[in-house]
């Protein structure tokens, strides 16, 4: 229900925003297209994207929704004559590979480290890890990523300078994975290093709060194994607020990740967005933003599903 409304809001915003921009996007486009693209294509595009000036806004909106339902996002100017949907289709897997993997790894390691630190509160790990990761998380991302790129990739040559694959075309064939991971490693590393501290600290705090609960006391009184108390009783409860935090920050994670792609010329959605902006490629810009919005919603939805699995209290609602 919520997701339906949110999706609709995203679609509608995406429709309205370009129309709020100063000047008529259609005219800007026409001016840019003159002499470069054949007029027929322009007409097709105008109709396809509901930018027909002879129609009312409502009619345009209707046409826009119909086009969307057919998966028609118009034609990219930058990559003419490729349809936007196709450009996005090529970018999306790379973003998923890099951002989803790095974010999940960061969340998992950070959470696990938080559990261990809290469980052995005051121990060696607890006095070292939170400090280090708070420090690395305070790096300005852009600065850190550039430094890594400069030293580890450019100077030392241990990592590729950019792209997500060797050669001109990437493929997810099994034999390509070592190469893909090699290209993902450095950008992924910068994401993990700068985001892990947040997960670690919040999980550590949740754990410490949870460990004061009566049910932990009870689990000890039962003589259960330490491991079971730590995971099934303490961590299992402490992770719930962390999941909520995770869901809430997916938007930020994605916007931060766009930066990663730009710094590392990684051919995902962020990089595509940059191209679209630089080339005033409105259809591509709109399509990318829409896809990002949908992706964020989808990620939220998945986290919600997982949360429901982990917390029986929200199940019967």
């Amino acid at each position: 229900m919520f997701y339906g409304v949110a999706l609709w809001a995203a679609l509608t915003l995406n429709f309205i925003l370009p129309r709020l921009m100063p000047g008529n996007p259609a005219e800007i486009l026409l001016a840019r297209f003159k002499g470069r693209v054949n007029p027929k294509a322009i007409d097709a595009f105008m109709v396809a994207f509901g930018l027909n000036q002879h129609h009312t806004l409502i009619q345009q909106y209707g046409a826009y929704l119909v086009q969307l339902m057919h998966g028609n996002l118009g034609i990219s100017i930058t990559y003419y004559p490729e349809p936007v949907i196709q450009v996005l289709g090529q970018a999306l897997p790379w973003t998923l590979l890099l951002i989803a993997m790095a974010t999940i790894i960061s969340f998992l390691i950070g959470t696990l480290a938080g559990i261990v630190a809290a469980w052995h509160r005051g121990g060696v790990f607890d006095s070292v890890a939170p400090g280090i990761f708070t420090f690395t998380s305070s790096f300005p991302y852009f600065w850190f990523a550039l430094i890594m790129l400069y030293f580890l990739a450019y100077k030392a040559g241990w990592f590729p300078i950019g792209s997500a694959y060797a050669g001109n075309h990437g493929s997810f064939a099994l034999s390509n994975w070592p190469d893909l991971l090699y290209h993902t490693a450095l950008p992924g590393f910068t994401i993990v290093v700068t985001s892990i501290g947040g997960w670690l600290l919040s999980m550590r705090n949740n754990m410490i709060t949870t460990m004061g609960q009566d049910y932990i006391h009870m689990a000890r009184a039962k003589g259960l194994a330490r491991r079971r108390i730590m995971y099934q009783y303490a961590a299992r409860n402490a992770i719930l607020p962390n999941m909520t935090g995770f869901a809430l920050s997916i938007g930020f994670i994605v916007s931060g990740a766009l930066l990663t792609e730009i710094v590392f010329s990684y051919p995902g959605l962020g990089y595509t967005l940059l191209q679209a902006v630089q080339n005033e490629d409105y259809p591509l810009l709109q399509g990318t933003l829409l896809l990002i919005a949908v992706a964020v919603l989808l990620a939220n939805f998945l986290v919600d599903l997982l949360y429901v699995r982990l917390d029986p209290r929200v199940r019967n609602q």
Binding site: D214, Y215, H217, A219, K222, G223, Q232, N237, L240, L310
Partner: peptide, 24 residues
């Protein structure tokens, strides 16, 4: 002590709500 716990001595506490793990 862990071996003796629950087999020899067990505990019922004031707030059953708080003493039961809410997620299992």
């Amino acid at each position: 002590v862990d071996q003796w716990r629950w087999t020899r001595v067990s505990l019922v506490s004031q707030s059953a709500m708080n003493s039961l793990n809410p997620v299992i």
